[in-house]
Computed example of a mutant assay.
Amino acid sequence: MRMVSITEIRRNAKAVLAELVKNKKPIAILQRSKPVAYIIDAESFDKLQLLEDNDLKESRKRFLEKITKVKKRIVKKGVPEDSIMLIRDLREGKNRYE
């Protein structure tokens, strides 16, 4: 991975971006010899966004399945469905009220 200073970005932004587009490798931006940011090409960014969206969908799916299981358990016990109890059970873990 190439590392460039902020000063170099100011002086040669066009050249740095051209290299980024050509090589498709992230570039670290350094400030006082420490990385403060990374530049990636648009195609790589789009791929990362897509992966993140898919992970989020899977996470939501697992969470909804967990909510459904807790609701079924509450109804099975004969306890009226109460959103407060459901939220508390999800937050503090199952078997809390058993």
Rank of each mutant, 00 (worst) to 15 (best):
R88C: 09
P35C: 08
A42N: 11
V4Y: 00
L50V: 01
R96S: 14
I9V: 03
A28Q: 00
A13S: 04
I29D: 04
V21R: 15
E19F: 02
E65A: 04
T68P: 01
M1D: 11
Q31Y: 05
R10N: 07
A15W: 02
E19V: 05
L90D: 13
S5P: 09
N95Y: 15
T68L: 06
R96T: 12
R10E: 09
I9Q: 00
K22S: 12
V4S: 00
V70A: 09
D55C: 12
T68Q: 08
E52Y: 13
R2H: 00
I67Q: 00
I27A: 01
D46I: 10
K24T: 02
D82P: 02
V16L: 05
A28P: 04
N54H: 12
A37P: 03
S5Q: 05
D89S: 15
E19C: 03
R11M: 05
L86T: 10
D55Q: 15
R32L: 13
K66D: 01
E19P: 02
Y38D: 00
V16N: 01
E92H: 11
M85D: 00
Q49F: 02
R96F: 14
K22R: 14
R60A: 07
S59K: 03
A37L: 12
D53W: 10
N95V: 13
K69R: 04
L90P: 03
R96H: 13
L17R: 01
R2P: 00
E58S: 09
S59C: 08
E19R: 07
S33V: 03
L48V: 01
I87L: 08
I40E: 00
M85S: 11
G78C: 09
S5N: 01
T68H: 08
S44I: 02
M1F: 11
V79T: 11
A37F: 13
Y97R: 15
E98S: 10
D46N: 08
G78K: 14
V21T: 09
Q49M: 07
V16K: 00
M85L: 15
E43G: 04
R2Q: 07
I84V: 14
Y97E: 15
V79N: 08
F63R: 07
I9W: 01
V21G: 05
S5I: 04
K66T: 01
Q49C: 03
K57Y: 01
E19H: 06
L56N: 14
F63E: 09
F45M: 10
L30I: 06
P35G: 03
K94N: 10
L56G: 10
R10Q: 07
S5G: 06
M85W: 08
D46C: 09
V70K: 05
R88Y: 11
T7Y: 05
K14F: 01
R60Q: 06
E52I: 10
E81S: 07
S59N: 03
I84C: 12
K14S: 05
E19A: 03
D89G: 15
M85P: 09
K24P: 02
I40V: 08
K69W: 00
V4C: 06
K25N: 02
K24R: 12
L64M: 13
L20K: 08
I40R: 11
D41Q: 03
K22N: 06
